[in-house]
Design a protein around this nucleic acid. Structure first.
Lengths: 207, 207
DNA sequence: CTTGACAAGTCAACAGTGTTTACTTATACC
DNA sequence: GGTATAAGTAAACACTGTTGACTTGTCAAG
């Protein structure tokens, strides 16, 4: 069915798969460098050298293009695989290193569009399947999903704040200290029993 | 200068301030109930019964309209005023109660558009002046802004996750337990010294 | 090789967005 | 009453995502 090679010929042959992939590659490149909302369908098409209508033909809508792009990459590559021991620290290190270095561009594409209502379902699936799900499975125990959701909140929140205010405040802390701190924060999220409150909370008046 | 009353007359007189306020009221109502991106300039204008061009005349752009709307409301009403003692718990309670009950609609408008690049400057100002700033002032100590930014990350992150996945996972915990947990998480953010890591972090290899 | 079918690709339009410009009109002062 | 000035308006601009009708390349059957 498929042509064996579509190689480098100038006026390339009609090849569904190759065209699809070409669109996907352009979308990933542009989304990750400029963000979802910034890049128009027509620009993706032009970058890929194909017609605009093909985006909707192959991916339903622009939304579907992002969904396919982010489905390709793991949220926590090689982190949950390490097991429960030291998980908070590994998450913290991952977060800090991609926070301070700009890190995985895909995360940026997601943070760019975190609140976009058009992408709610895309983000919902991503959050559940790639973050809360794996995390909950690793930590186990009661209310695992709630604890995982809390950790995911911290991870997304830090990324969001970094994107909004340029990490100016966060960079007051040097990376190592920030990792320490985030590790303890994430530990508090994932812990099975809610620990007695830290030194700053002596005034708890609840019954 | 201004007309003393523009009252209820049908074809109302030309009154700059009244028109401005009318637009602002419509924007607040629509933004908070449907979100920034959902509501078009033309719809706001129609709801206010004014011409579309007046939005840009009075607020520069749609962005300016949101900026003015969110400038009207405090981020943590009556929370930082309570001082350092019990601050994490008050923040946690505020967050949970507005999370579970839908809470202040303005926060929703913000979460709706958290990642919108067009609103970056608006969110930046809001984050710095209404969240990190007051928080840092209350907690004091070294790297106060960094610690405050961390707490703000948690607060924004939880709101974001709630909005994305409908709080399904977070609601595994009953509200009181969630408050406990969040209070300890926020305490970990605000603490002056990064505490020794909790029970799950025995594998720390730094130092 | 010719024919025909079907999928791949194209074009132009639609309805919508935020924004701007030129314009009309009502008001307030002289 | 006349007029400057501001308030309000209408129409357009350039752009967005999306759709349906159309053309064209390719492959299989006759």
């Amino acid at each position: 069915m498929e042509r064996p090679e579509d190689g480098g010929c100038a006026g390339r042959a009609r090849d569904r798969e190759a065209t699809r992939q070409r669109i996907l590659d352009s979308a990933r490149e542009l989304f990750t460098s400029e963000g979802y909302a910034q890049v128009s369908s027509r620009r993706i098409a032009a970058h890929a050298g194909v017609n605009v209508a093909l985006i909707n033909r192959y991916f339903g809508a622009k939304r579907g293009l992002l969904a396919e792009v982010i489905a390709e990459e793991a949220a926590f590559p090689g982190i949950v695989e390490g097991g429960r021991e030291g998980l908070p620290r590994r998450l913290a290190e991952h977060l800090v290193h991609r926070t301070l270095a700009g890190g995985t561009p895909l995360a940026r594409a997601l943070e760019h569009s975190a609140g976009d209502p058009d992408l709610k379902s895309v983000h919902e699936e991503r959050l559940k399947n790639a973050m809360i799900g794996p995390l909950a499975e690793v930590i186990g125990g009661p209310e695992a999903r709630a604890r995982a959701a809390l950790a995911a909140s911290v991870i997304l929140g830090v990324g969001l704040v970094r994107r909004i205010e340029g990490a100016a405040a966060l960079q007051e802390l040097d990376p190592d200290r920030l990792v320490d701190r985030l590790a303890s924060v994430i530990s508090a999220c994932l812990a099975e029993s809610a620990p007695g409150q830290a030194h700053s909370g002596s005034g708890r008046g609840r019954g």
